[in-house]
Simulated scan of single mutants.
Amino acid sequence: MALLHRAEIRPTKLELLATWLPGRDWYQGDTDAQVARVAAYRFDDPAGEVGIETLLVRAGTGPVHQVPLTYRGAPLDGAEEWLVGTVEHSVLGTRWVYDACGDPVYAAALADAVLAGSGQAEEYFEVDGAREVRPASMDIHTDAAGTVEIPRLGAVRRVVDGDPTVIVTDAIELAVLRRLGRTGSAPTGATLTGTWDGVTAPLAYASLR
């Protein structure tokens, strides 16, 4: 479960992405258009230390991009090239925001979602000691839950940025699609798919082999 805070964040996540996305080779969109949130989903970090959120965003009339992010309370050693930027959170303080494809905590959570069907984390606020659940903005599914033994990932050996972005570990490879619904982007292997309001046919988000 993901505890949310009613907090002020500066810069906002979308403001951060507006400056970062145009520098990605896989990004397509009007650099002058405002980056808008389409939907989002989160994974749980079993240790409770790292926030894991995947944003679906669009700039103007451009395609929907999938941007997984991790939020950390301190820099991640050796991950400077994956740093999107830092934000000031009025409750949690300084947060280091990473392209999650370079974060091993995200790789483990994504593998668990694909192979075990762990799904997305339930998001909630605490209001006067009671839990207030925020409805999910989208759904995710896997075609492999319970059919494949979950391997021990081991270390992340390399990450190949692109569309898809490929995360190579000791045991598996994960492919994260960046532009959703792109022609010719059908993945191979166990696949995570999803839908959101207005999109009823599942689109592939990531795959594992």
Rank of each mutant, 00 (worst) to 15 (best):
V91C: 07
I9G: 02
F43V: 00
R95I: 07
L192Q: 01
R6M: 15
V67P: 05
T193M: 08
L21A: 11
G184V: 08
R157N: 09
V84S: 00
G48P: 13
L115E: 02
H141D: 13
S118N: 01
V148E: 07
R209M: 05
G117A: 01
G93L: 02
A186W: 14
P104I: 00
L4Q: 14
S137K: 01
T188N: 12
I172Y: 03
G129S: 06
G85T: 08
Q34V: 15
G23D: 13
A175Q: 13
G93W: 07
G119T: 03
R131M: 12
R182P: 03
L192V: 02
V35D: 00
V84F: 00
A108V: 12
G198R: 11
R152V: 15
R42S: 14
L14K: 01
G29H: 02
V35W: 00
G93E: 12
A107L: 01
G146I: 08
D170E: 15
G198Y: 09
P135V: 06
G48K: 09
W196T: 02
G48I: 14
L203T: 01
S137Y: 02
I52V: 11
R72L: 09
T195F: 04
T169A: 09
L55M: 10
V156I: 09
R179E: 10
V199Q: 14
G48F: 11
M138W: 06
R131T: 14
T183G: 12
P104T: 08
D25E: 15
S207T: 02
I150R: 14
G181N: 11
G154F: 04
G23Q: 11
